[in-house]
Design a protein around this nucleic acid. Structure first.
Lengths: 199, 199
DNA sequence: ACAAGAGTGTTGACACAGTCAACATACGAT
DNA sequence: ATCGTATGTTGACTGTGTCAACACTCTTGT
């Protein structure tokens, strides 16, 4: 075995990619560090040059997920004309992401071990998403669609609804409706109505 | 009770109890079958006489959790006079349960491996909870608090909101408010308003 | 150009966990 | 009292995360 294969070009990225793929195809339970290494064509303890521990690898994968979800949400937010549809589009995008990447979404929210304190990068990525949601609510307030007042609790409720929906669908706890985002849309409209200014 | 130390009186129950306790004190990650066995004073493979596998044990623990949560919800539902407060009380009870038993709640909803298909008992217990929620919505419809129509989607939304709230709080993704159930109450009222009949 | 030295990858080894098989012991019905 | 069955025990195997010691390669200061 000659020189060129000793050093893998970008093992870190390769590992993250393999992890994401394994997550998508086989689920988190089947994701093993040794398996990833083999898949990438590297020995079992090579990953330790790039990640402190398995948890750290998973945290990095989760962080990537948060970034992508934040992007999806931002995109949805900007591609809508009327401001009340923003809400609906956002909810749809959120739920759609979760349903498209169930194991990934589960990983992002489901691991107690992935406490954000231990993984600052994860924390940052999650904050990015939160900020996007906050911006959407603030905007809705400005448009007079949502009652004014402290945003944090309102964001909390909106996030909870959409996250809960995503979770229940992802975990298979709830029958998915025929059309994928029917429920997300209904949820968004219900929420909007519940949050509308009193008159 | 039993004088001979060879046979443990009711190992099955003892294991379930130890598991619940370990879950509460050390979290799911630290829960090991061998550890449980030791804790109960029994050899490492004794649990296999009562549970097919570790997953089966966890499923049983989760099922117990669903039963207790369903009971808590039912109790909350019946202890309230006016019908519109039922909703609020229910949400509070739900979220309170999750916050009181974080690891347990996580186990109930967070494990993909615990697919209900594989564990009929789990499925039944979860259905019990779902039925309780459905009953609450139906009742609210009868009282004219919630618009009439198919219940399933409405239940879905209500469940999603309350579950999402519980999850975010449990996972530490969201700052808990000063008063514990402030958010739950706000969520319930918002939802109620969003679901109220058009006029 | 060249010799450190840092960076990256490899093999060997260990502890621990889930699980099965073979064996031991108690309980309950005949 | 006996025999079968339920329950518990020990031994062994596999797979996994992780560390330590060693090997290769790329970069960099002189």
């Amino acid at each position: 075995m000659r020189s060129s294969s000793y050093h893998h070009g970008d093992l870190r990225r390769a590992l993250l990619g393999a992890a994401a793929e394994a997550l998508a195809t086989e689920g988190a339970a089947a994701l093993t560090l040794r398996g990833l290494a083999a898949r990438v064509g590297v020995s079992r303890s090579a990953p330790y040059r790039h990640f402190e521990t398995k948890e750290a690898l998973l945290a990095a994968v989760a962080a990537e997920g948060f970034e992508r979800l934040a992007t999806a949400v931002q995109t949805a937010r900007q591609n809508v004309a009327t401001s009340d549809e923003t809400f609906v589009a956002l909810a749809k995008a959120y739920v759609a992401f979760a349903r498209a990447h169930p194991s990934h979404y589960r990983l992002m929210y489901g691991r107690e071990a992935l406490s954000r304190q231990d993984h600052p990068a994860l924390q940052d990525a999650a904050d990015g998403l939160y900020d996007a949601l906050t911006a959407a609510i603030t905007e809705a307030q400005a448009a007079g669609l949502v009652r004014s007042g402290e945003v944090a609790p309102l964001v909390g409720i909106a996030w909870a609804l959409v996250h809960g929906l995503a979770m229940l669908l992802v975990e298979g706890q709830m029958e998915p409706p025929a059309s994928d985002d029917t429920l997300a849309e209904l949820a968004a409209r219900t929420l909007l109505r519940g949050l509308s200014p009193a008159d």
